[in-house]
Design a protein around this nucleic acid. Structure first.
Lengths: 146, 146
DNA sequence: CTAATTAAAGACTTCGTGAATCTATAATAT
DNA sequence: ATATTATAGATTCACGAAGTCTTTAATTAG
């Protein structure tokens, strides 16, 4: 059981976009280069983020992507759900003779555990990450863009 | 990202074994039937539990499996680790220009989230499940065995 | 000692999905 | 009109989960 690489790309791209000057757009190519992934594949990931309402895309010469939600309103859980989906990690599909037929006690524990993880991921926003990023690095990124 | 079926089989088998009268062994066939899975596949799962020290196996006529750890000393996390392994759910393999080269802030958040889940899974033991199981069902299982 | 029983181990198959590529197509700006 | 950019679709590839089959080893009963 592992988080997908797509989730990693999505998280990093959102942070990257959040570091850009407000209103500034950036194409998929530099984003892909920064993460050493192919532009076509990354674009598939980003399209999910567009459809989920985190970022906006534009075609043509000055097109590209830009963040349209405030970093403090984007939680880790939001992004993860956009990429991985929202189905729970554990499903006991067994026909229970041991326990109640309706509810599996094991499943309840597993779901509660997942909730603990989600609670934390919901509490952590992109803004929290931005606050940790070295100002020098922020300036470097913005200078590359301009 | 999902927990494997093997983890589900392992958890249910441990609970089943814990419901048996102490010292009683049971073969893989009835265990497999109860979970509607093939005996050969379930035996692969159970072998992992043997090697991890939760259960004991014996060959021959009165062989089979039995629990050798106290239910109150078996946590969900123990079993999950035995089946799924202990590698973390998230690994940022990126060469960081955005953040420090050494530590990815995103990865730190993801790992902390996983810790929250693990903390809970570590707090929940098989004993907790046993306490919830209907006494009628316990008696039925034991009567089937005897 | 032999036959029956049982788990363990290894090779193998099947299937689904993550990861990625390639090739259009559509939209936009100069 | 042409270049630029994202989107969509088809397709490929690799890997691991899930499961089967067969053989081997260990144990007990007769």
């Amino acid at each position: 059981m592992k988080y997908s690489k797509a989730t990693n790309y999505a998280l990093h791209t959102i942070v990257y976009l959040a570091l850009l000057p407000p209103g500034k757009t950036i194409g998929v190519k530099p984003l892909a280069e920064a993460q050493k992934v192919s532009p076509t594949y990354l674009s598939k990931v980003l399209t999910k983020l567009v459809k989920s309402g985190f970022i906006e895309s534009g075609t043509g010469v000055n097109g590209g992507y830009q963040l349209i939600k405030d970093a403090k309103d984007i939680t880790f859980l939001d992004i993860i759900h956009a990429i991985e989906g929202t189905t729970s990690l554990f499903n006991c599909g067994l026909d229970h003779t041991i326990h109640d037929r309706q509810n599996c006690f094991i499943e309840k524990v597993m779901n509660e555990a997942e909730q603990k993880m989600e609670d934390y991921l919901r509490s952590q926003t992109i803004e929290h990450i931005l606050q940790k990023v070295d100002k020098n690095i922020v300036n470097r990124i913005r200078s590359v863009v301009n």
